[in-house]
Write a protein that binds this DNA or RNA. Structure first.
Length: 309
DNA sequence: AAGACGAAAGTGGTTGA
DNA sequence: TCAACAACTTTCGTCTT
């Protein structure tokens, strides 16, 4: 990461994510894109010999998926072509253009609407541009494969966004997405699974550590508490406490414990709220953490220190 | 009075026959 | 396709601070 940027100017967060591929620096706490359009480090294609280079080098502006036609666009024929055609050919030409028109307007109209919705939700959640692009790409693919049929456009948009967030390690919870998009949580989950499965997009299970930064900053916890929480998470992962559990619950519990150890106590309710889980889940994870990580000694020490008969 | 804790019953989703 | 199952939630009563 370039030396210049250490802190997020928006929220002061220190969890910056440098995405080399897109040339962006993103604040993981608030999602602000700090530096954009740096150098594009990636090559679009590899060239193995002279023959291939001709077709593979790119020229012109890179494509963008947030324009409904990817910034390119095709129309059948220009008027000038007409003069070259005879009567029969001319009819064929008109038929083709009509078809092209019908198909493309249906898809394009849908895409225009959907991308507008996508941008709205994305900006509301302060998602980085890279995620927005990715979700637009996913949505476009979904439309082309006819996966939207029978589902509301909004729910597919939400599903695409959710998937894109996961892939870029800036996870938002289904609850957050649900709030902004107005689609039910389970509906988003359903379309998310459906779309990713149909498109063959593989998504790693999200890492609890990815949530820590955001939760910690909305709870106004210190940086030490935060990094300690991540250490706790690592230990928990070694003890195989994390598999099969919801990542948000684990992240929340680790933060809760860490806050206790640093005298920055938050109530279970407070932590539960920002993590979008219940107190009970935090308690369960918390108990498991104490059992497995022998942290209970430290907690007890703390309590004895207070009592001091 | 508020927070922490735990038990019991209910929900939505996954898995394996 | 259905039943068993694990994770999580909701609700509620009790204990602690």
């Amino acid at each position: 990461m370039p030396e210049l940027v250490k802190k997020c100017p928006e929220c002061g967060g220190i969890n910056l994510n440098w995405n080399k591929e897109r040339g962006e620096i993103i604040c993981r706490d608030c999602g602000l894109v700090i530096e954009e359009k740096m150098v594009d480090f990636t090559q679009e294609w590899r060239e193995f010999d002279g023959d291939q280079s001709e077709g593979r080098r790119r020229a012109g502006a890179p494509m963008t998926y947030t324009q409904f036609d990817h910034g390119l666009g095709t129309e059948v024929g220009q008027k000038a072509d007409l003069f070259k055609l005879g009567g029969k050919e001319r009819n064929k030409f008109f038929r083709l253009r009509k078809w092209q028109y019908r198909i493309s307007t249906a898809i394009e109209r849908n895409l225009k609407l959907a991308l507008a919705e996508l941008k709205r939700v994305s900006s509301y959640l302060k998602l980085p541009k890279s995620v927005e692009e990715e979700s637009a790409r996913i949505y476009t693919l979904a439309v082309q494969r006819g996966l939207v049929r029978g589902r509301s456009m909004e729910s597919v948009v939400a599903g695409a966004l959710y998937a894109a967030c996961r892939r870029h390690d800036v996870p938002r919870t289904l609850d957050e997405l649900s709030d902004v998009s107005g689609i039910e949580k389970k509906e988003i989950g359903r379309t998310y699974r459906f779309v990713t499965r149909e498109l063959g997009i593989t998504i790693l299970p999200s890492n609890p550590a990815d949530y820590i930064a955001r939760f910690a900053s909305s709870l106004k916890l210190s940086a030490e508490t935060q990094s300690n929480a991540i250490e706790i998470l690592e230990q928990a992962q070694k003890a195989e406490l994390t598999s099969g559990r919801g990542p948000t619950g684990i992240a929340a519990a680790a933060l809760y414990v860490s806050a206790l150890l640093h005298n920055e106590k938050r109530t279970q309710r407070e932590v539960a709220d920002v993590a979008g889980v219940t107190e009970v889940t935090i308690r369960n994870r918390y108990k498991e953490l104490l059992d497995e990580l022998k942290l209970d000694k430290e907690i007890k020490k703390r309590k004895k220190g207070k009592k001091r008969k």
